[in-house]
Design a protein around this nucleic acid. Sequence first.
DNA 1: AAAAATAATGAACAGTGTTCAGTATTCAAA
DNA 2: TTTGAATACTGAACACTGTTCATTATTTTT
Lengths: 203, 203
Amino acid sequence: MTIATRKQREKEEMRSLILDAARKIFLEKGYHDTSMRNIAEEIQYSPGTIYLYFRDKDEIFHALHEEGFRRMLTKMQPLGHVSSPFERLKALGKVYLEFATENKDFYDLMFIMQAPIKHEADHEQWEMGHQTLDYLKQVLTECKKEGYFKGKNIEYLSFAVWSGVHGMAALYCRERCKAYHDIEPGELIEEGYKYLVNMLENL
Amino acid sequence: MTIATRKQREKEEMRSLILDAARKIFLEKGYHDTSMRNIAEEIQYSPGTIYLYFRDKDEIFHALHEEGFRRMLTKMQPLGHVSSPFERLKALGKVYLEFATENKDFYDLMFIMQAPIKHEADHEQWEMGHQTLDYLKQVLTECKKEGYFKGKNIEYLSFAVWSGVHGMAALYCRERCKAYHDIEPGELIEEGYKYLVNMLENL
DNA sequence: AAAAATAATGAACAGTGTTCAGTATTCAAA
DNA sequence: TTTGAATACTGAACACTGTTCATTATTTTT
């Protein structure tokens, strides 16, 4: 018994070791510029070893994908303490954009990168994503109860709101904010978000 | 003289030939799954030949990038005939989203893909991008003259508007609309855009 | 201590972008 | 029209990629 559990623990430790190295290099050089050999070298094992713990590069991608959502959800925990629904919505957007700018590469991984849909494990993988989206819908529903968004459909509305913040985050992550030569991306997002909130107030 | 110009014409024809093949395969299999050998095979030349007409894969990318903007700007031409500025703004967003959904891969190339910033030709490359953004700002300014967007900063506002439509387009291009299981992406974008327009009307 | 099970290796495969010595073709001058 | 220079093209080679798998090393069980 004790040895079987130790084995399992060792297996998990090895997965962590690989994941730590992968995260480090992924976030340093990006997904495509990180090779399995790079990761193997980082942990001082042969490339083949990684394949004893992960089916392929995509499975590593998905593991980090999930980690990103866990981090985001953690960052959203404090929102429960905001009593007013609309204030909570405002704070949610702020947290979302903060997460995106502070964890650029995680955000990219989660919402922009082409997620390879090889393994049908996708349903599982997006579990976390749905949790986040559901939370947005919930907050919007609560806002509605307070008189906001009269006659608006929650599904469409949530998509519009999500698109609003995702748009800014995506333009930021993929360096398209540079189109505004003499305005800092941070300022752009901050002021842009103010207008988005303004628009939602009057909808 | 005549032979020198013929040479140049042949050179341009060859570039077109390569570009046509590259576009075809890029849009079929995506940028990363298209190899220089694939393109060479398509035009029945050796891989090395391509490098006599394009510095590297990135230069081909940038050529198509530019083509995308030319296509988009063409699609925007008829907007000049819409007299009311706000109607023009609405139509602009519609055209933008139509372009994105109808030319998914071009849109991806233009606004989502990590544009490699190797060559300092970037200034040139984004010329077209700026033209598009400038047009949006112009329309917004005209709307302002008609009483819309009182006291709003055009730079920030344009960013918010661009983010709104880009967000939808980006979620669509990278398959994140699937988070809404039983709503078609097309419907999502159409209805989401209605809300965005609604919001802009009341801003 | 021997046998079985597990873990790790690293060479090999088929692919990638890119380079460049060598060959074929086209052109200009004699 | 023939010769020498310029141009165009080739395809093997380089250093890389993700992935597999026979072989070797280690650990566990008998």
